[in-house]
Design a protein around this nucleic acid. Sequence first.
DNA 1: GAACATGCTGGAGCGCACTCCAGCTCAAGC
DNA 2: GCTTGAGCTGGAGTGCGCTCCAGCATGTTC
Lengths: 146, 146
Amino acid sequence: MRRDFHIGELAARTGRSIYTIRWYEKQGLIPGVARDAGGRRVYADHHVAWLDLIDRLRRTGMSIAQLRQYTALTRQGKSALKEQRALLAAHGERVRETIADWTEALALIDAKVAFYGEWMKQGKRPELAPHRRAAVPAKVPRKRRA
Amino acid sequence: MRRDFHIGELAARTGRSIYTIRWYEKQGLIPGVARDAGGRRVYADHHVAWLDLIDRLRRTGMSIAQLRQYTALTRQGKSALKEQRALLAAHGERVRETIADWTEALALIDAKVAFYGEWMKQGKRPELAPHRRAAVPAKVPRKRRA
DNA sequence: GAACATGCTGGAGCGCACTCCAGCTCAAGC
DNA sequence: GCTTGAGCTGGAGTGCGCTCCAGCATGTTC
């Protein structure tokens, strides 16, 4: 069974570039990276799993800064369990909100696509374009950049 | 009833900054902006609606470049209806995929939060951490930066 | 007609998340 | 023992989407 390996294999197994992995480490997102006699980084299977988790969080909009915080908490282990949980739960909440937001947007997009369909079918513009009546609240400051 | 207004009011009514509005126009995202005698931009209510639509699309991950394309198509009016519809439908598909992706990620996050809860309750790490068994496909090149 | 607000332009700057390079070391295979 | 390949470092560069500024023109109020 495989024991450990170098950065090239980690890159291949996670789909991230070697550059990115080194950069992530520099940002404090990859704890527990040993070096071999020649100064090369040495990884084990759990690093693959960790990078996959990181990737899930990144892809759901978690910033590098928050990821750094989370990583720092996991480094503290058991003593910071509560904080680890809280951070992840908060992120989950943001994800839930975003999904709701996107779902709402999707309804609008679908309506507009249907509207175009009608327009094409009838050869003339149907009454009241959907986006002209959409009561989108105007002043709300944008919370996330999804 | 209100007829038209200047950039300050448009900014106030859409929640975007004056800078952003001017920049959007430079990027070709705001068609039909007239000028008054003094060279100032003049807007009407439909610009508010348009900016709200733009915002919906932006917030669901449409890039400025795609928005530019879409705007160009709407400028062509009826003759490009089919393309407008296709572009929006394609975006809708991407939104659908992203929602699915995020929903999947949310399940993982919730599982991990629950795992932390167990750990804290039992005082010892439960069997098999969820992210260590998650069979995330590794090599798939990331398609979007959500 | 002076003061103040609002708007204009071109262009510089910024924050984020990478991405890449030059120049070097080290290890393994022939 | 020499070539080849993989990895190392510090630092520069990139793309995106804004954000802001200086310096100037115009409009409004008193």
